[in-house]
Amino acid sequence: MNRQIITIWAIRLALLGGLLAVWEGGAGILFDPYFVSRPSEIAEQFWGLLASGRLFYHAGITVVEALAGFVCGGLAGTAVGILLGRNELLGRALDPVILIFYSLPKIALAPLFVIWFGIGIEMKVILTGTIVFFLVFLNTYTGVRGVSRELVAIMKLMGARESDLLTKVVLPSVVTWVFTGLKLSVPYALIGALVGELIAANRGLGYLLSDAAGQFNTSGVFAAILAIIILAVLLNLAVREFERRMMPWQAGQYDREMSI
């Protein structure tokens, strides 16, 4: 088992090293560095951003936007999902509205949000929140609808009221679905924040990206992309850790040996 892990890492490092070597060595021979830059130059730019503190400043802005949108959209999506999931009449009545908004690529709302909320941080939070809301809402809604009707009947025979069903069954069982929605949402939350910044902003990683591109600074663009990748991975890890803590009953399931 351990040997296998070592082999896997060896393959990964070899691939990465190979890619970087071809990129670095090939630039200027195989392809034009004007378009693809060089790993060494990208690293230099990245280090420059890091050392000057610009990276942290801009990444901080993007993180705040993405997180605020993520939290607001996630909470609202969970709440509305539970409400419509438990209230069948309301759910069915609002079905077309849900479908319309779900089908609409939320990015298309960005220009409207600029008009409504300006080009400040609010607009990015709202755009991100809208995107996350729908993902979390739909997953929560499906989860609430999926609560076993047999279980609900069994609990009603025990004398359960609606409040008991909600706190003892619906909310805990929905946690799984909320997290499915949240995990799906991480890249979309970043898309929301970045697109918001690309459209109109003077701060954030999206701004850094468009600023570098505007100056035809390819190394700067790649450096910004690298920062975005790192940010996305960190956000994903954070959600996973949060999930692990929220659902301790699932802890053992990954560690156990696979069997069918």
Partner: peptide, 17 residues
């Protein structure tokens, strides 16, 4: 719902959390 009875099915319907 007749609350003087208890119901048990093939699926145990225990709460995993």
């Amino acid at each position: 719902y007749n609350q003087r009875v208890g119901y048990m099915t093939q699926s145990d319907h225990l709460l995993p959390w």
